[in-house]
Design a protein around this nucleic acid. Structure first.
Lengths: 339, 339
DNA sequence: ATCTCGATGATATACGTGTATCATTCGATA
DNA sequence: TATCGAATGATACACGTATATCATCGAGAT
């Protein structure tokens, strides 16, 4: 920032400096084929000399688009959502779209507020994480006439379209695997399902798989940790579980960081995994495969979800019809030696 | 997105629906104290009924501000920069500012492009990571009349202001610690310094500390890994170092993920840390303290840098003078048992 | 009865870009 | 020479909001 306030260079300035009319300069930029190559070159030259940068706010006003796409993530730090956001950003950027970012901290009210400002800023599309929205947010999105993509889960009641994986199936698959593997006392450790469809679906997936196998599901079976799920929380959690009269022989963490924390606690405290207790995670952060006891987990490709969400958005912006697509990018059980 | 295209509700619509003049409605929103409480309530009621959302692009055109702040990070996935970005976003949001995000992939040309679009979109301020910019980017920023904050390092040739920590000192401190601790054959593993002032300063910090202590610094002492630094790269790196005729007794990784990878490889391959080889990292991701052999590293608080960068930006936007502030948020050696 | 003030309105202009309409110029072609 | 098309220009208006200026009107104070 220089000391004095500089006047901004506008199209009119370029027109004056180049001796050409405003309309010709505008045409040179918007419909280049209609103006002579020599003229275009001359205009480009003055643009470079003056350092003209078009005011996209003004353009947005008349073109009714902003080349910005609003993205809401619940959290960014130490999570797969960073991969997701990077995937979105990198896929959008070559198309001249920029990401307007908001971190909702898992609070639907913050998401609503973000949506409101995205709309106010004329965002061309909105990408959300999850299906948990306030009523007001739903109304806003209903009236909004741009693509809306809900990411990180697959469900039926889509607002517009969705990209993600089946959280319920992923949790259920892993649970069935643990049951088939012969574990008797499986405990699930998950996050709060309040305002979190992913947590809710995962939890329900576990419950459904358990009951389908004739297993009891009681308060002892389901333990809740606080969001955000940290690696630090894993140690105390597994410790308290192992201190129970009836020790679990397998613990399924519905998030990766606490699972890693639990694993590291076991390593440091002489608890043998999976002999003393089996541990399974959810997320497959890169560390998990490299642990001394590589961890069984559900692989999720956050970056891929981001890229797919961006791709779907761009297709819609290029005219693809609103057909309530729900794209399932899938997940994959990574069976390793911790179970 | 609904089927039909909906007409947007404008101030004029609110004016018509409420029976009040355009100017009064505008005043009710911009200078509430000048209009009667009853009238304000009436206006608010119609705003709610119509679902009016002001067009910030139009407002931006006349107010010459956008309430958006451009942020460039080199990478987001699995890195401290996610903490940084989250810190920035959360600190800006209560002030009604939104983050325009760009991921540069460590490429100055991408940063330049991002800066250009930030300016075009009338961003009120720009927050960058690092001091490595293209010449064109420098010219753009010189002409730009909003605050510019360069984050993640401290240097003298600041464009406008900076927030970060002294990468050179951090690397030098750790190196001195290793030397004082008695390690004879210290090898440094760092990222490419090309277009990366942080990597360059850290590397130089190691070199300076080594030569100050009378140690030889040769090609054997300095090993380079590819960016982005991954946890997977750590294993092969330490393996090749330990296969040398002259094995290092300490390895200082200038990034945290490869250090963690190296540590895990040692754990899995019977290499005792620090007895066979000491390992130090740089970054202090939460995992490092929880490893079976807790890792010595340099603690960096990415989130704090983000918050400080945002705070500095906001102060400037609220009128604080451009005094080329360089805020040092510091770092901290975390001496643990891996050295 | 005059004056002041609070509240509201009418009108105009500005912000920077895009575009529709119509006009002009010039060189090439029939 | 008449015609046509390509290239450029002049003018006007639109996008949605903000605000400056001046006007109006009624209630209360002097």
């Amino acid at each position: 920032m220089a000391g004095e306030t500089r006047k901004k260079v506008t199209l009119k300035d370029v027109s004056k400096a180049s001796g050409l009319s405003l309309i010709t300069v505008s045409r040179a930029l918007r419909q280049p084929q209609t103006v002579h190559a020599d003229t275009r070159a001359k205009i480009q030259k003055t643009i470079d000399e003056l350092g003209y940068i078009p005011n996209l706010a003004a353009r947005s006003l008349v073109s009714q688009r902003s080349d910005m796409i609003g993205v809401v993530v619940p959290i960014l730090a130490s999570s797969l959502f960073a991969d997701f956001a990077e995937g979105v950003s990198k896929a959008l950027e070559p198309q001249g779209q920029r990401v307007l970012l908001a971190v909702s901290n898992w609070q639907p009210e913050k998401e609503e507020e973000a949506i409101r400002t995205f709309i106010a800023r004329q965002a061309d599309a909105i990408i959300l994480t999850g299906f948990s929205h306030t009523d007001a947010a739903r109304r806003l999105l209903d009236r909004y006439d741009g693509p809306v993509v809900e990411a990180w889960n697959t469900r039926d009641n889509v607002i517009d379209s969705a990209v993600g994986f089946d959280n319920h199936a992923a949790a259920a698959d892993m649970t069935r695997y643990l049951i088939d593997k012969g574990y008797r006392d499986i405990v699930m450790v998950g996050g709060s399902s309040v305002n979190n469809d992913q947590a809710a679906d995962r939890t329900q997936g576990v419950i459904d798989a358990m009951t389908a196998a004739g297993r009891e599901v009681g308060p002892e079976t389901i333990v809740e940790f606080d969001n955000p799920a940290t690696i630090e929380s894993g140690g105390p959690l597994i410790r308290s579980l192992l201190a129970r009269d009836r020790k679990p022989d397998a613990v399924f963490f519905l998030a990766e960081l606490p699972a890693q924390g639990a694993m590291l606690w076991c390593l440091s405290n002489g608890v043998r995994v999976p002999r003393d207790v089996a541990i399974a995670g959810f997320g497959d952060l890169s560390l998990s495969a490299l642990l001394p006891v590589p961890m069984t987990t559900v692989q999720i490709r956050g970056r891929e979800i981001g890229e797919a969400a961006a791709a779907q958005t761009l297709q819609r912006l290029q005219g693809a019809p609103a057909d309530r697509t729900v794209k399932d990018v899938g997940f994959q059980l990574q069976i390793r030696s911790s179970t």
